[in-house]
Design a protein around this nucleic acid. Structure first.
Lengths: 340, 340
DNA sequence: GTGAAAGCGCTAACAA
DNA sequence: TTGTTAGCGCTTTCAC
């Protein structure tokens, strides 16, 4: 019966009110579960709602209530499995709380990222989750500062603005990875890493710390550039050509993909000729032969935590805060004793 | 100067009108590029806009104009790299045309998927892109039918409703894969495949067609179940335990991951002991040793095409239509001659 | 070319 | 407990 009518045209609240012979405000109260509603009124209204197949217009609600129940997520590259999993965590937590997610992909372009922030603000999102591409990009930082809504930053350091952050403890995972390699006798270790954002600097720091903690000289080499597959391949080629490193750590999943590609191409036998550690436990790592040791973290949980930080601010009125999540080094056969 | 003020509070169009000493309608005309605006008016208004840091409220615009410039994307599992790439294609095309994307993830649950359709409809999206989980789920089909906006379905057959579709020609890619294996002498070929949705039925059909075209008896085995990693592992174990298949095709990237995991665990040497073909050219396939032959397609382009089909309907007023995109078999060393 | 006024669909005082 | 009223911020007739 309801479907019979609803197929025709969308009913408005006014029509429901007319059909039920009550005021619009009463319909509104019934729909939003207001306590002061008599059972009689309630059923009158619900009957009309059912008959007309009425569904509230969330757009109009948003305009009037001055909240959209919508959060913007600005991601740098959705095709990166790391972000895909974070998106999953964010979306499911938002949805479980009645919120929707506007997703924008900035394709690695900081200017586009800044524009996205502005667009989402104009769309009146109630909050923003973002993994800033460049922590020092002036326009991005300025836009974030001007936002009057809770902002959650993913694993980035954006100085001078009050935002919540979910951070990974890259440093510890990286240190453990290096310790593992040192224990296996490696001293000439190469690190392929990104630059300009927190995961890069933290991994870099953890890497060097490990040598320092052990009181070892700096017999390592660091290949620092973008977080791209290309940098991974380029650096790996240089490392193999130089020929003195006995172990390589790729500090990022795209870097790992690039490095592994070169290893495969050149037929380098990981774990014997060269030890290897990656970051982020994506699908290849335990399928590769030999399985690849990684510094792992729970990406879905990162997303979930980001959404929770948002709710903490918007619902509980809490102040911005940081939450640090652990990383864990997973030894696998791609690491072996240093070859003679 | 502009930023000095805008930091305070969001300015409304009314405030702009007051500051400029003109009517709101004039501000509106300037903002939306209406032709009948004198240069004088234009600059008066823009000066006020700049001074107040005014940015139009897209929410209010949407309510009044009765269009949100927003498209909903209902995805079954965003952590699947296939969908991540499609999302990328959809989002970038939408954004290039001034639209935003509301993304929902239904976690493989048809009931949740149906609910998402309803929610997005209430949010008044102008269109919907969806890769239906279950082509026959009555509630989902009913909801899609009731929608009054353009719907684009990704690689699914949803009977009885007028939607645009972007389809992959799985059949051809699969046939070529089987031909390749047949040419290598394989006859006992196992197919691990999903069920209930177009990619499954098409791959299944293409597989059987290849044998039929060659006039060969049905010396194959088909393992049909969900599109999950688990089905991939389970089926692969059964196939290896049965011990008569000389080649395996996994008809889906998750199925491929499961199957490859078993192959790795058991130390099966692909291309020699057992030939193997996967679907979807995800990151592992050419890193695996040996590199894995696959039936490939352009996922980002699928997303782009979906968005274009939406624009075709909403802008050009075109009727719903289907676009079929090719798939391509990529031979790699995971396929070899049948072992003696 | 510009302004006044009505209203998109809803909510929230306030009054009854 | 219910109804009346005044908007949320914008666009769009319709006069002038």
């Amino acid at each position: 019966m309801a479907s019979d009518v609803s197929r025709h045209r969308r009913a408005s609240m006014r029509e429901v009110a007319e059909k039920a012979g009550v005021a619009m405000s009463s319909v509104s109260r019934v729909m939003s579960g207001h306590p002061d509603v008599s059972p009689a009124m309630r059923s009158r209204v619900l009957a009309a709602v059912d008959e007309l197949g009425y569904e509230p217009d969330l757009l109009a609600q948003s305009l009037r209530r001055r909240e959209t129940l919508t959060v913007g997520f600005v991601v740098g590259d959705i095709s990166n499995p790391l972000f895909a999993e974070i998106v999953m965590g964010v979306e499911s937590t938002l949805h479980a709380n009645g919120y929707s997610m506007l997703l924008t992909n900035s394709l690695g372009d900081p200017a586009m990222e800044a524009a996205h922030i502005g667009l989402l603000s104009q769309r009146r999102v109630d909050g923003l989750v973002i993994s800033v591409l460049d922590e020092t990009h002036p326009e991005t930082v300025a836009r974030l500062r001007e936002l009057e809504i809770p902002v959650v930053v993913l694993d980035r350091t954006v100085p001078g603005i009050g935002v919540s952050r979910v951070l990974s403890n890259h440093r510890e995972g990286m240190r453990d990875a290096v310790f593992h390699l040192l224990d296996l006798g490696h001293r000439q270790i190469a690190l392929i890493v990104g630059t300009g954002v927190r995961p890069a600097t933290e991994r870099h720091a953890g890497f060097e710390e490990a040598f320092a903690v052990r009181g070892l000289p700096r017999t390592y080499a660091i290949y620092e550039d973008s977080f791209s597959v290309e940098h991974g391949t380029r650096a790996m080629r240089e490392i193999l050509d130089a020929g003195n490193a006995t172990a390589v750590i790729a500090g990022g999943n795209q870097l790992m993909l690039g490095a592994l590609r070169v290893a495969s191409e050149r037929g380098v036998e990981l774990g014997r000729e060269l030890s290897f550690v990656g970051c982020d436990d994506i699908a290849i790592t335990d399928l590769y032969q030999p399985p690849v040791a990684v510094v792992r973290r729970d990406n879905v949980n990162m997303g979930r935590t980001a959404a929770e930080l948002f709710f903490g601010r918007v619902r509980d009125g809490a102040a911005p805060k940081d939450i640090e999540l652990p990383t864990e080094f997973i030894p696998r056969p791609s690491c072996g004793p240093v070859a003679e």
